[in-house]
Amino acid sequence: MNKSMIRYLLSKLLLIEAVLLLVPVAVALYYRESSQVFTALFSTIGILVLLGGSGILQKPKNQRIYAKEGVLIVALCWILWSFFGGLPFVFARQIPSVIDAFFEISSGFTTTGATILNDVSVLSRSLLFWRSFTHLIGGMGVLVFALAIMDNAKNSHLEVMKAEVPGPVFGKVVSKLKNTAQILYLLYLALFSLFVI
């Protein structure tokens, strides 16, 4: 098992989540929310940048991954993204339980829409936006999104994509996996925009 490549890809994925958390920060700025919300968001971003940054410092020599690494990366990505994605709720004390916050965000990334909240309007606008934004990201698949924007010169992320997409057979739309993921996401965002209008 190529543990260094698993670490490297998971670290990149944590950095991607840190960048995605900047969107609710912008929402919090727009609505001039409390310093507690900003502290919660920036604390989570700081943790993600620290962990992700330290994990990508040393690029693995062997960048090949196989099916078992692909499945492990998918499973760990869902767990890590849900855990760290729920931290702003815990830090802002809007969902005090780590388990409840984990459930709330994992339901977003999996687009099940389940919630532990009786009334979602009790959340601050930025955290309510983050909760909704996770549904948009998860609608196409967290890792499909990540593969669309990650650098993959050697096309070694094929096993990750195979583990993420449903069905027994995976096929690429074009020869490069990154371009396939980008095309799929552009179609997804185009349909999303059409329904918003």
Results as ranks from 00 to 15, higher is better:
117 L>V: 09
144 V>F: 02
8 Y>G: 07
145 F>W: 11
2 N>M: 03
127 L>E: 01
106 S>A: 11
155 N>P: 00
21 L>T: 06
56 I>L: 06
117 L>Q: 06
189 L>G: 02
41 L>R: 09
60 P>G: 10
118 N>L: 14
115 T>C: 05
86 G>H: 00
23 V>S: 12
130 W>I: 03
44 T>I: 01
138 G>D: 03
126 S>G: 07
192 F>C: 01
17 E>K: 12
47 I>L: 14
40 A>N: 06
193 S>C: 12
16 I>L: 14
176 K>E: 15
74 V>M: 14
154 K>G: 07
101 A>N: 05
183 I>V: 03
65 I>M: 12
174 V>M: 13
50 L>Q: 01
184 L>E: 08
45 I>R: 03
162 K>I: 08
120 V>L: 09
168 P>D: 14
134 T>N: 06
168 P>L: 15
97 S>N: 13
179 N>R: 12
88 P>R: 06
101 A>T: 08
170 F>Y: 15
100 D>E: 15
45 I>A: 11
6 I>T: 11
175 S>I: 11
150 M>D: 00
166 P>T: 06
54 S>Q: 08
89 F>P: 02
148 A>S: 10
171 G>P: 00
20 L>Q: 00
4 S>M: 09
160 V>N: 05
54 S>K: 06
188 Y>I: 11
108 G>A: 07
27 V>H: 07
12 K>N: 13
161 M>S: 00
155 N>L: 13
18 A>N: 07
8 Y>S: 08
152 N>Y: 00
39 T>A: 12
90 V>M: 07
132 S>W: 04
96 P>T: 14
64 R>F: 12
97 S>T: 05
187 L>N: 04
58 Q>K: 15
